[in-house]
Design a protein around this nucleic acid. Sequence first.
DNA 1: AATGAATGAGCGTTCATTCAT
DNA 2: TATGAATGAACGCTCATTCAT
Lengths: 199, 199, 199, 199
Amino acid sequence: MPRRSAKSLTRQAKQARAKTTVNVIVDAAAQVLIREGYAGATTNRIAERAGVSVGSVYQYFDDKDAVFARLIDREIEAVVSIFSAGTGIPEESLMSALRRLLTVAVETWSYGPQLYRQLEHVPDDALRRRVTEAKTLLAGFIRSLLETHRAELRVRDLDVATFVVINASTGLSTNATTEMYGEPLVETTVELLERYLIA
Amino acid sequence: MPRRSAKSLTRQAKQARAKTTVNVIVDAAAQVLIREGYAGATTNRIAERAGVSVGSVYQYFDDKDAVFARLIDREIEAVVSIFSAGTGIPEESLMSALRRLLTVAVETWSYGPQLYRQLEHVPDDALRRRVTEAKTLLAGFIRSLLETHRAELRVRDLDVATFVVINASTGLSTNATTEMYGEPLVETTVELLERYLIA
Amino acid sequence: MPRRSAKSLTRQAKQARAKTTVNVIVDAAAQVLIREGYAGATTNRIAERAGVSVGSVYQYFDDKDAVFARLIDREIEAVVSIFSAGTGIPEESLMSALRRLLTVAVETWSYGPQLYRQLEHVPDDALRRRVTEAKTLLAGFIRSLLETHRAELRVRDLDVATFVVINASTGLSTNATTEMYGEPLVETTVELLERYLIA
Amino acid sequence: MPRRSAKSLTRQAKQARAKTTVNVIVDAAAQVLIREGYAGATTNRIAERAGVSVGSVYQYFDDKDAVFARLIDREIEAVVSIFSAGTGIPEESLMSALRRLLTVAVETWSYGPQLYRQLEHVPDDALRRRVTEAKTLLAGFIRSLLETHRAELRVRDLDVATFVVINASTGLSTNATTEMYGEPLVETTVELLERYLIA
DNA sequence: AATGAATGAGCGTTCATTCAT
DNA sequence: TATGAATGAACGCTCATTCAT
């Protein structure tokens, strides 16, 4: 499998998205959010980066937070579709499945850990709740995957195992550095999880 | 070791701090930051909670972000002092040292992961740089600890090991839940790291 | 004479009006103005109620206030035509003439006092001037009516009498309540004016 | 009784009012409201006329409408205090009482009919409700005054009489002109009411 | 002619910062 | 030193107006 860099896939993903005004604005919001943080992500700044006027932002979104809500939904959808699609492969080993999911997740993650970091700290409660819901959804997927492979596991408590898998993975990937990202990051994570989960 | 121990230690730490106006203000800033988030942490709110006037805040700090800068410095100092103190014990095993550091870190961390989470997203660049510096400092401590115990390690690359130790630990602890915190959290983390680091 | 008569007359008046786009828009403006007040009478809302696009509003009117100007003109024309028509009846007593005018005015007034009240507070100066002009016009009609019946009057100063007739009438009718409207309102007004004007 | 003009009394009233920042702002709001209408009465315009910054407006008022609410309350208080004070005089004839009330009301009315006219059409419901309440209060005073003098009245229905007294009076006074204001206005109104009420 | 997406000036409001007391 | 009323730039958002289709 020729390894395409996460970056190029991300770029493709962005180009593939129909360049509707809505998407242009959501993309602009993501970029401004990463560069300036939530406090600096003003409606005027977002509009400017999107190349539209403030008025256009409000033509498509009820208010500023609705833009971020849409952004969150888009990211959640991406992750959920990866994990939903992944359940269909039979006879796949646990670590192979985890590696596959991590790889695709990292590659699909449009703006990487930087966006995710900012998104988790958007002040609006409703927005954060969406992120939490996504996490719960994710936990369900992981738990059922672990359940399928229970025989191989050295860890007794599946809830603890799920907690570790999710939070160790996100702990590493949200802190990806220039020296540690892409495939090496996935491999390191897989190694960490394998030694923890399997005897 | 019951949960309340951490709390009482935190309380002690706060009581030990000289009740200078500066410290009163910085404490108020931390509390408001946790309760209201950065957006809600207005200078008036901080001053009010500190029991002083806005003017007094500006008597001791150049601007609002200087208050948070001081808060970050204080947290960094706390972490540094823990890890500095920790190097003195000879013949201690790696996992024993990590367990001790994690335990003390969790207990000493004045406002816990909540503050840390908010602090990482303070908009000012200089502030974020300080948080990064703290991480680098921490990485140095962990790396030298790992170096001391290199013989026991199955991981070759010390940078990778350091990256994993720090980010897996913070990944778990910043996502502490009501079912997974305190000693169980430390034990789970130690287990994860032990299986990863040691053959 | 039951209340519904006024309503049906209003409806007739509206139906009689040629259904040009201009009139559709002006009617929509009147309805929105009454329902939402001037602040809520946005061009988009008016266009929507008129069943045309905003662009069409600007095809027929220079700007938003021009729509209200046209509305005012239409109301003025209605009043003028009532009073013009009224002068033709010879040998009619003053009170009979006033009663007739009040009755017809109340019935013909397309949108009643509600519209008038809103119209008086449209911010544009030119618009308010038109309302004032209409009042002056009205005052002329009333004055000449009083002049015709000068012999019957106990009031010396015709300007004062005109002032009283107009403003007492509008004072009562713009404050019509559910208990005091329609014929009783007209009768009460006629009684008030009769006792004032005639010995 | 030397007749002091309504204008000079108004000026005195304004000077008597303690020139607190709150009152400066409320006065400014009244002036801007009269000159520009509600739509033109922007917070910045009010602040500018008051000689303070926008921020100061919000130091004393929750929002823009709170300024107008305070203005309405001030006007209501003035009217209520006039009518409350008036009930104490025994043996006073009905018309004498009405003349007295009208005179004081017109003189105390800080900004005259212009302000009242604008005030009645402020868009906020809560504000208009206050004006309505004031009217109800006023109706109560008038009704009890009429009740006291029932014997002298030719009008049977006290509710109708109250309706006429209030709305004819306000009809005339809110349309005061340069030729018809002050004492002549009061006398004309008294004449109108006297002929209506008393045989 | 008719449309309605796009524009951007201007609104109400907040809050970091200053300074007379 | 300490205060807190006052400031005004900058925010989120609306809506009269334009113009490519």
